[in-house]
Each structure stands twice: as structure tokens, then as C-alpha cells.
């Protein structure tokens, strides 16, 4: 409880702004009397929702790649875990939950996040002692293994069935193999996503500006020196990794309840690469940068969808990335933050 009081005390301005934004958004989304159309069309609010989820993904990846200096390439895998866990829960429980639907949804998101965080912890323990490129490769490998497990889930279910574990087998069948899960309830509406993403960002920001954050920073600057200074680097690295995985899982849950259909193909390593691009384009070690670039790049990508230039989109996207890295190798923001992103006592 104390934590929440400090949370609100430290971020009261933010909460007021959030409330205002929410009310404003509500107005924008109600159909206007004259036209019957809301100012914020369905299409635009869809894009903003996706962009916000990407923001959460980028910020959480930045926690590991930027602030702790560990190169992880497996963010899509954690998103995959969260998406599958959350949508299986809502698929099974929601129909029976009546009025408690939103509560179930939130719980499903949290459970998705926790599952993902736990797996992140388990993966992190042995792998985080690897350095640099090796860690990158292993995380990438893990995310592909996770995805492959989803693909072969039917076979796993069959095996379980044949050895008599029928109920577990039935649950695993829900994963749907390469077909994925369809008919997910639409729950990730814009205001809900906005609130959850905002909470995620605030919590991660507060973490970064805490003594934990300083330990992360010190690891990212010089791991060996931190170790000799008595910082338990393994502990902090796994911690950053699991928290990052937690939020990636939440992001996955949100995405699933927006797209309403998920399959292993949503979470290939290209997905991880996408988030990596947001982080580096925005600037490693800058939350503001991640927010900006995830918002900006998603919008660019989604709006160009309308221009009937479909094939060209990724060409431009790739060129944009190359030019950005060549002209601004430290990303848009470098490691700077917008002033309002920094807690008062650090400004």
C-alpha cells in the first residue's frame, strides 16, 4: 500500500494528465451528432493502440538492452508466452465469467506477464553469464524454441493423450499448433491499453531511477568492475531480464486481445527485431526515445498501409533504419530523456 502512495505522490501530475487524456479520448471516440462518426476513427484508434503496445514492448526491451547493457534478441518469444497464456485463460474462463469480464482480462494479462517473467527468469539464470553476442544468439534461439513448441503443440498433445494425460492434453490442444488461437475476445480497447502501458512505463522508469537502476547502469557501463565492487551482477541481470519479460508478456496479452487471432507466425524473430529497431532508433538508455520511436515508426508503417504502396513499406522502413543508424548511431535521443520523464529529484 505504501508503495502505491509513493507511486501516486511521485507521479501525481502524470496521473492528472492521464485522466485528462482519457476523458478527452472518450470525447474523441463518441460518434459526433452531425456525422455519426467519431473524430477518432476506428482505424486511427486501432493504430494508436498497436503503437502503444509497441511502446510497452520497446521500453521493456530497453530495460535489458539499454539500461543493463545486455543484448537480448528474444523479446518476441516472451511476447508469445504472454499472448498465449492470456488468451488461453480468457478463452476458457471469459464465457463463464459474466460481469467480471474485465477483471478476468486484467488477471489474464497479469498471469501472462508472470508466466513470461518466470520463464524469463529460468532462461536468464543460465544464459546471462554469457556475454555480448553470445547472449544475443541464445536469447534468439530461446524465442525460436518457444515459438516452435507452439507450432508442434498438437503433436505434444497427442503424445500426452496417448499416455493417458487427457485433460492436460485437451488444454494443450487449445494452443492450436500452427493454426493458432482464434476468436479471442476484444478487450484491448484504447483507454485500457493506454492505462496499462502508462503504468508499465512509470513502474519501469521508477525502477531505473532506484538503487536497482543504478546497479543496472553500473553493469551496463562495466560489468567486471561492478562485480569487483560487490554488485551481484547475476542477480541484477536476471532481475532486469525477468521484469522485462514480464512486461513483454503483458504486451503480448494486450496484442492478442487486439488482433483477436494469434498464431506462432506473429512471433517470429522478425518481431524481436522490430522491437530492437525501436529501441536503437530511439536511443539505448532513453525511455523517451523508445516511446518516440515506437510511436513514430509504428504510425509511419501503419499509415503507409493506406497508400497502396504495400510492397514498398518495408523497403522504406529498412532504408530509414540504415540512414538513421549511419547519421545518428546513438539513436534519436541518445541517452537523454524528456524532462518530464525524469523524477523531480533527478532533474
Amino acid at each position: 500500500m505504501n508503495y502505491f502512495i509513493t507511486l501516486i505522490k511521485r507521479n501525481w501530475l502524470f496521473f492528472i494528465i492521464m485522466t485528462a487524456v482519457l476523458i478527452f479520448m472518450n470525447i474523441l471516440q463518441t460518434p459526433q451528432k452531425s456525422t455519426g462518426e467519431p473524430i477518432l476513427s476506428e482505424f486511427i484508434s486501432h493504430i494508436i493502440t498497436i503503437a502503444l503496445i509497441n511502446v510497452l514492448m520497446a521500453v521493456s526491451l530497453n530495460l535489458v538492452n539499454g539500461f543493463t547493457g545486455q543484448l537480448s534478441l528474444g523479446h518476441g518469444g516472451f511476447m508469445c508466452i504472454g499472448a498465449y497464456s492470456a488468451s488461453m485463460i480468457t478463452k476458457i474462463i471469459l464465457p463463464a465469467s459474466g460481469n467480471a469480464g474485465w477483471l478476468v482480462f486484467i488477471l489474464a494479462l497479469i498471469i501472462g506477464g508472470i508466466t513470461s517473467g518466470l520463464i524469463g527468469y529460468l532462461i536468464g539464470l543460465p544464459t546471462l553469464r554469457l556475454k555480448g553476442d553470445y547472449l544475443a544468439i541464445v536469447t534468439l534461439g530461446f524465442s525460436e524454441v518457444i515459438r516452435s513448441i507452439m507450432v508442434i503443440s498438437d503433436d505434444i498433445a497427442n503424445v500426452l493423450n496417448s499416455i493417458g494425460l487427457v485433460s492436460i492434453s485437451n488444454v494443450i490442444k487449445e494452443i492450436g499448433g500452427p493454426r493458432g488461437i482464434t476468436g479471442i475476445d476484444e478487450r484491448s480497447i484504447l483507454p485500457v491499453v493506454l492505462i496499462i502501458v502508462a503504468i508499465g512505463i512509470i513502474m519501469m522508469r521508477n525502477l531505473i531511477y532506484s538503487s536497482f537502476g543504478r546497479a543496472f547502469q553500473s553493469i551496463s557501463e562495466d560489468e567486471i568492475a561492478s562485480e569487483t565492487m560487490g554488485i551481484n551482477t547475476t542477480k541484477y541481470k536476471t532481475m532486469a531480464f525477468s521484469i522485462s519479460a514480464f512486461w513483454a508478456g503483458v504486451g503480448g496479452g494486450l496484442l492478442a486481445h487486439k488482433l483477436l487471432f494469434i498464431s506462432p507466425n506473429n512471433f517470429t524473430f522478425l518481431k524481436s527485431i522490430e522491437y530492437l529497431i525501436y529501441v536503437y532508433a530511439g536511443g539505448i538508455g532513453s525511455i523517451s526515445g523508445s516511446i518516440l520511436s515506437a510511436m513514430g515508426l509504428t504510425c509511419v508503417l501503419e499509415f503507409t498501409r493506406t497508400l497502396n504502396l504495400d510492397e514498398w513499406r518495408f523497403v522504406f522502413y529498412a532504408l530509414l533504419l540504415i540512414v538513421l543508424m549511419l547519421k545518428k548511431p546513438a539513436g534519436l535521443m541518445g541517452n537523454k530523456e524528456f524532462r518530464f520523464m525524469i523524477p523531480r529529484e533527478y532533474r
Binding site: 527485431i273 518495408f314 523497403v315 522502413y317 529498412a318 532504408l319 533504419l321 540504415i322 548511431p329
Partner: peptide, 15 residues
């Protein structure tokens, strides 16, 4: 930053 550029080049060539 070179690593990310390499990713960009890869995306570019494919697309």
C-alpha cells in the same frame, strides 16, 4: 549500431 544497420540491410535486401 552496426548490428542494427546489418538488420536494416537485411530487411532492405529482402523487401
Amino acid at each position: 549500431s552496426v548490428l542494427i544497420t546489418a538488420l536494416g540491410v537485411s530487411l532492405f535486401l529482402e523487401n
